[in-house]
C-alpha cells in the first residue's frame, strides 16, 4: 500500500478548476517533486495533501484512510501527527526565538523539549543561533529553522512549498543538502517547486499545468547515496 494515494482529485473555486482529476501515488521514503508554472495548482495540491484543504471531488488516502472525508478537527490531528510543513515564506512566529519556534510544533504535538529542539537546530547547523529572533536571522537561516520545526515531531511526510524560492544560491544548496540527508534517513519528501534544478534532485517529478497532471518524469540520474 502506498503511503499517499491521490485518486481523481479536483478542486473547484467557483468557475475555476484549480485541480482537475489529478491522481498520483507516493511511496514511503520517496522524494517527489511537483512542478508547474504559477497557477498550475501546485499550492492547491500541497494544501490538500497537507490536510489544510479538502478536495471538491476525489479521494486522498494517507496510510489507507481517506482524509477528504475527515472533519476539520481530525485533519488538524493528522497534520499534527503525520505531516511536517515547510513554507516559502518560512512563517516563523516573529516574537519567539529560533528554538522557541521549533518548540511551538512540539507543544501542539505533545510536550515541548528544549534539548530535543536544540538538537533539531544543530542538525540544520543553527544551534548557535537558537536564541535569536527571526528578525535577527538571514532568509536561509529562517528556512532552516522552518525545516527543524517541520522535522521535530518525526512526521511521515515532509511537505515543502517552494522551499528555496526566497533563498540565494548558497542557502539553496544548504537546504537541498538537508533534503538529501532526510531522504537518506527514509523521510518521505514532497517538494513543490517551479525551479527545475530543485526538481532534478528528486526521484520523480510530477508536472502540473492548468490543474491537470500532464507529465511524470522519473529521474534516471537520481543517486541513492
Amino acid at each position: 500500500m502506498s503511503l499517499l494515494e491521490v485518486k481523481n482529485v479536483s478542486k473547484i473555486y467557483g468557475p475555476l478548476k484549480a485541480l482537475d482529476q489529478v491522481s498520483l501515488k507516493v511511496e514511503n521514503g520517496e522524494w517527489v517533486a511537483i512542478m508547474g508554472p504559477s497557477g498550475s495548482g501546485k499550492s492547491t495540491m500541497m494544501n490538500i495533501i497537507g490536510c489544510m484543504d479538502k478536495p471538491s471531488q476525489g479521494e486522498v488516502l494517507l496510510d489507507g484512510a481517506d482524509i477528504a472525508k475527515e472533519s476539520n478537527k481530525a485533519l488538524t490531528a493528522i497534520r499534527r501527527d503525520k505531516i511536517g510543513l515547510i513554507f516559502q515564506q518560512f512563517h516563523l512566529v516573529n516574537y519567539l526565538t529560533a528554538v522557541e519556534n521549533v518548540m511551538v510544533s512540539q507543544y501542539y504535538h505533545s510536550m515541548p523539549d528544549e534539548k530535543e529542539a536544540l538538537e533539531a537546530l544543530e542538525r540544520v547547523g543553527l544551534k548557535d543561533r537558537a536564541k535569536h529572533l527571526p528578525s535577527q536571522l538571514s532568509g536561509g537561516e529562517q528556512q532552516r529553522v522552518c525545516i527543524a520545526r517541520a522535522l521535530i515531531n518525526h512526521p511521515e511526510i515532509v511537505l515543502a512549498d517552494e522551499p528555496t524560492g526566497n533563498l540565494d544560491e548558497a542557502n539553496e544548496g544548504i537546504v537541498l543538502e538537508l533534503f538529501k540527508q532526510l531522504h537518506r534517513e527514509g523521510t518521505t519528501l514532497i517538494v513543490v517547486t517551479h525551479d527545475p534544478e530543485v526538481a532534478e534532485e528528486a526521484q520523480r517529478t510530477i508536472v502540473l499545468e492548468h490543474g491537470r497532471l500532464v507529465r511524470e518524469i522519473v529521474n534516471e540520474n537520481f543517486k541513492e547515496d
Binding site: 497537507g50 488538524t76 510543513l85 515564506q89 512563517h91 512566529v93 516573529n94 510544533s105 501542539y108
Partner: peptide
C-alpha cells in the same frame, strides 16, 4: 499568519 501557522502545526 502566526495563527494560521499554529493551526497548521496542529493547534486546536
Amino acid at each position: 499568519n502566526e495563527i494560521g501557522l499554529m493551526k497548521a502545526v496542529g493547534a486546536r
